[in-house]
């Protein structure tokens, strides 16, 4: 089979327009594999037939499904692990000192996909905050489908097998038919909203910690800069930003400074970092 060049161009243009994500040529195989289930869901005979009918007759619902299928990141609980370790070992102890009056932390999981990251953050804070502290976690994603999934807080067997310790699975999840559901005591700390990181963001109370991982890699430099500027406005002056391992603010946005956090790096707003407070890299 294989996707024709014109079908690929059509999909790439659609995804670019709706999400700013660039699908480079060479990803035809990936595009086709991701669209097979979409074609099946809408009752098309195959991917080619599905795309042909979508080009003949635009359909907002089908377009949204295409964008969702192609912009959903592969994710898992505690993905890459190091940022979560840095959060509990380095960031939380510092914030606990600085927020003694409020006893509350706010964390944003930007581009939270199917929800594993925000719930992993909830588990991390549940296990590392001193008694009497509270926390709010906001997950955001461009995909309404992903927001719906995340709010349901249900994960498949394969998903919970990945990244969670068995002890965490029995402590923070309960079986719900074929799925595992996050327990209410954790869910009540986590909320979701649809956000497009490249557009001006709504006013939200600022965050102490922001996880924005494996998002910037999809954007060109100008869009990366826009996203980082948008994010800075929602970050507390002494807040912490975590990016993906292959991402950086360096050479894109000088307002951030890279600092070591445990065995990984985080980014802080330049003006606010007191001299010597964190190891500069």
């Amino acid at each position: 089979m294989g996707l024709s060049a014109s079908d690929f161009a059509f999909v790439a243009a659609l995804v670019r327009r709706e999400s700013s994500i660039v699908l480079a040529p060479g990803k035809e195989y990936l595009v086709e594999a991701r669209l097979i289930p979409v074609a099946r869901q809408v009752g098309a005979a195959g991917v080619a037939e599905f795309l042909a009918s979508l080009q003949r007759m635009p359909n907002a619902d089908h377009q949204r499904r295409v964008v969702d299928a192609l912009t959903t990141n592969e994710t898992s609980f505690f993905r890459d692990r190091e940022p979560f370790t840095a959060l509990t070992d380095v960031v939380v102890p510092q914030l606990v000192k600085a927020r003694g009056a409020q006893r509350r932390l706010r964390v944003w999981s930007a581009a939270s996909s199917s929800g594993q990251e925000p719930y992993s953050l909830a588990i991390s804070l549940q296990e590392s905050l001193p008694p009497g502290w509270d926390y709010d976690i906001v997950g955001s994603d461009i995909s309404t489908e992903m927001i719906k999934r995340s709010e349901a807080a249900e994960f498949s067997q394969v998903e919970v097998n990945r990244g969670l310790a068995a002890q965490q699975l029995v402590q923070y999840f309960e079986r719900s038919g074929a799925h595992w559901r996050v327990v209410q005591s954790l869910r009540r700390h986590v909320s979701f909203q649809r956000l497009n990181l490249t557009a001006p963001l709504p006013p939200l109370p600022p965050f102490d910690v922001i996880f924005l991982r494996n998002v910037l890699i999809y954007f060109d430099v100008a869009t990366k800069r826009t996203v980082l500027r948008n994010v800075a406005r929602l970050m507390r002056p002494d807040g912490w930003l975590f990016l993906g391992a292959a991402e950086t603010t360096i050479g894109i946005d000088d307002n951030y400074e890279r600092v070591t956090a445990g065995r990984t790096s985080a980014y802080r707003l330049r003006a606010a970092v007191p001299a010597g407070a964190a190891g500069r890299m």
Binding site: P37, Q157, A178
Partner: peptide, 28 residues
Amino acid sequence: QTVPNVADLAEMVEQVWTSYLDPEGVEP
């Protein structure tokens, strides 16, 4: 009385396929 329905079976079987028989997601 909670007995798994067809949707539950389908989801489980799909996971068997994802794990062992169709890891690339091309022959579901």
